[in-house]
Design a protein around this nucleic acid. Structure first.
Length: 152
DNA sequence: GCCAACGTTGGC
DNA sequence: GCCAACGTTGGC
């Protein structure tokens, strides 16, 4: 059992939009960074906890809780020429980009970046590290518990 | 729109 | 394999 923080631009996929989907589940398409892909492909397991993070928006921060709902499988958007995530260098017989399904569980109050930074227990959170841009980052069990408390 | 930080590309 | 140039991310 692992925990993760996954960034999404709410204009593209918000916690509300995910909760509106059948089974509250969405394929986490569009990841085009090898490190983030490797987390999904190699480390994620069904049932892992996910902090649903809204980025590149007026109020960046943790917006809800979710869980990993599938093992990794090929991201279809890499083969779609009309998608902005199209990757002409990826071959169907050897897909370069993988994704997992994410099931939204609960919308929380918005826990802002500033609030995260103000928590001493979260000082080592990967997302708060200087210059971090990874869209998927591991979260420790202690950090996860801290967020659970903060969400109330 | 700015800019720091980091990833990727491609010539050599 | 090096590394400069370029592109992207994402908070502000």
């Amino acid at each position: 059992m692992h925990y993760w923080l996954m960034k999404s631009e709410p204009e593209e996929m918000s916690i509300d939009a995910a909760l509106a989907e059948p089974k509250h589940t969405v394929p986490w398409f569009g990841v085009r960074n090898y490190q983030a892909r490797n987390f999904m492909r190699d480390a994620m397991q069904v049932g892992d906890g996910v902090l649903f993070y809204h980025s590149s928006c007026p109020e960046p921060g943790v917006a809800g809780f979710a869980r990993v709902a599938s093992i990794a499988y090929p991201d279809a958007s890499q083969f779609d020429p009309d998608s902005k995530y199209f990757d002409p260098k990826s071959a169907p017989e050897q897909p370069r980009w993988m994704l997992v399904d994410v099931q939204a569980l609960k919308k929380t109050r918005l826990i802002s970046l500033a609030e995260l930074r103000a928590q001493p227990e979260l000082a080592n959170m990967v997302i708060l590290k200087r210059g971090n841009r990874l869209s998927i980052t591991p979260v420790s069990a202690a950090e996860w518990r801290c967020l659970q408390h903060m969400s109330k």
